[in-house]
Structure formats: C-alpha cells, structure tokens
C-alpha cells in the first residue's frame, strides 16, 4: 500500500511536466500579440513594447521561454501577471474560493445524490423513483448556464433567499447557490449511478442469504447493500472533484465568484502564460491526488482489491 502510494506520487512528476509543457505551448501558439492587447488598441512606444517583451521573456524562442519558466518554478517563483502582481499571490486568493465552492458542490452531490439514489433504487418503479429519474434527466439535458441563470433569477432575485452574486470575500453562505448549480448535473449522475448500483445489488445472492439469516430489512440495506453499492459511486465522485475545480468557469461567471475559473478565463484572453500554466498545473496535481484518494478509498471499501 505504501509502495503503491509512493509510486503514484512519483508518477506526478512526468504528468506535471507534460501538462505544463503542453499548456505553455498552447498559450504560446495562440494567435494575437498579448503586449499589443495590453494597451487596449492605443499606440504604444516601441521602446516600451520591447521592454515589456523582455520583462516577460516574450522576445525569446519557445524553448527558452519554457526553460526560464521552469527555472523560476524551482525557486518557487511563479512569475508576474501583466499588471505586475505575483502570480502566486493571485492564485493564493482565487484557489481557496474555488476549493470551497467545489467541496460544497461535492458535498451536495454526495449527500443528496446517494440519499435520493438509495431511496429510488430500493423503491424501483414507484412514484419517488419515477419522479427522481425524470428530474435527473431534465437536469442533465439543460445546459448549466441556463440552469444557473434561472436559479439566480428565481432564488436570488425574485424570492430573495440568497444573494444573486457573490461578494469579494466569498463567504460560505453566499456560495450555497453557486455550489448547487455547479453540482447539479453531477448530482443527477450520482443519483442514477447509485440507483442502478443499489437495484443490482438488491438481487445479489449474498443479500438473500443475509435476509435468510434473520437480519432486519434496515440492517440488510445498510450493511449488505449500501457498502457494496457505493464502490462505483466513490469512483465517480473522486474523478468529479477535479472537474468541479477546473470546470467552474461558467458558474463562477454567472455568480461573479472570484475563483480560479474566472482567473483562468481572463488570463487566457490576455495570453498571460505564467498565470495559465500555474493555474492548470495546480489543477493537474489536484486531479492526480483526487484519483489517488479514490483508489485508496476503493481498496478500503472492497477488500478484494489490494495494491502492491
């Protein structure tokens, strides 16, 4: 188990370098001159332009630029944004907000998804099951930005139950509505996955044997159906954490959340390679670690799986 974990962390190294190289190249290859765009179309003195280019190493060929970036990275210097702020400081402000948002979304998914999924699976074909199935289908079919705007309008503006947009510090309570929107689609998938898994395990031979032993219905469900059914759900949730962190661009845009999605979007528009690569690099690490946690959880839930 320890060896397995260690090996997975070693795998992080090539994954990290591969991802940063790719992202750096993509930003480099994006058409348009980031320096010219800085001045908003007004003419800029050639000397100033040249100085800026030199400051951000934009006058160097691609490999030198990437090499210099890596060199800075070793000394934990992530570079500066075009407005002169340290990238590390910008990221340090944005990541906690997005992490909070993503974990809240994940919690909503896990709690309500499993709960509704279990009830629907146990009462397959009944009214609750049918309602949940149709609702989840609707949620999956409607794009996030539509759902986001509708909920913002109804809950935020008309009912006034929550702030329609999030303030600068992005406290927990203001993030509930965006987290709901962010987690809604995955919630629908979790419900369907749990439901299918439960109704499959309900007919397993060992469940019948457990019943024949004289166990109460509740114990059979909790001890013998639920744990076995959660195995695929956990895999899904773990993989989803990564996409929630990186995929919050639309939701953060709608609710004006000052998180990573917003930051990344603006940085890409400006061609700020240092910011883009740093944000994506951290996302890659989050992804790999989340998947490692899933694998370890998997072994804990299913004793047949042992890593060597």
């Amino acid at each position: 188990m320890v060896m397995f974990t260690l090996r997975r962390f070693l795998q992080l190294i090539p994954v990290f370098f591969g991802a940063t190289l790719l992202v750096y190249f993509l930003v480099f290859a994006t058409p348009g001159d980031p320096i010219a765009a800085l001045s908003g179309g007004k003419p800029m003195a050639p000397a100033v332009q040249a100085a800026l280019r030199a400051q951000y190493n934009l006058d160097q060929p691609f490999w030198i630029q990437y090499g210099l970036y890596l060199k800075n990275l070793v000394t934990l210097n992530l570079g500066q944004t075009f407005s002169g702020q340290d990238v590390s400081a910008v990221i340090g402000r944005a990541y906690p907000v997005t992490a909070r948002l993503a974990f809240m979304a994940l919690a909503i998914e896990a709690i309500f998804g499993v709960l509704f999924g279990v009830i629907a699976g146990l009462r397959k074909g009944k009214l609750f099951d049918a309602t949940v199935l149709v609702a989840s289908l609707v949620v999956i079919a409607v794009p996030t930005f539509v759902l986001g705007f509708v909920l913002q309008l109804v809950i935020g503006v008309q009912l006034g139950w929550a702030r329609p947009t999030v303030s600068g510090a992005a406290p927990w309570n203001e993030l509930i509505l965006p987290a709901l929107v962010l987690g809604l689609v995955s919630l629908a998938y979790v419900i369907r996955l749990t439901r299918a898994s439960i109704s499959e395990n309900m007919n397993a031979d060992y469940v019948r044997t457990a019943t024949a032993k004289g166990l109460s219905r509740g114990r059979v469900v909790l001890v013998h159906i639920l744990r076995n059914s959660l195995i695929p759900v956990v895999t899904f949730l773990g993989a989803d954490l990564g996409s929630l962190m990186g995929g919050a661009i639309v939701t953060e845009g709608i609710f004006n959340v000052p998180g990573v999605g917003n930051l990344l979007y603006k940085a890409i528009l400006k061609g700020e390679s240092a910011t883009v690569v740093a944000v994506v690099g951290i996302l890659v690490i989050v992804f790999v670690v989340a998947n490692l946690v899933v694998d370890l959880l998997y072994a804990w839930l299913d004793p047949r799986i042992r890593y060597v």
């Binding site: 397993a204 031979d205 060992y206 044997t209 744990r227 004793p303 047949r304």
Partner: peptide, 11 residues
Amino acid sequence: PQDPMSNLNPV
C-alpha cells in the same frame, strides 16, 4: 444456499 461463491458478501 447454492453457490458458495456468490452467497457471502465479499466486503
């Protein structure tokens, strides 16, 4: 029960 492979909960 019949099948010893499937009648014990694997977890």
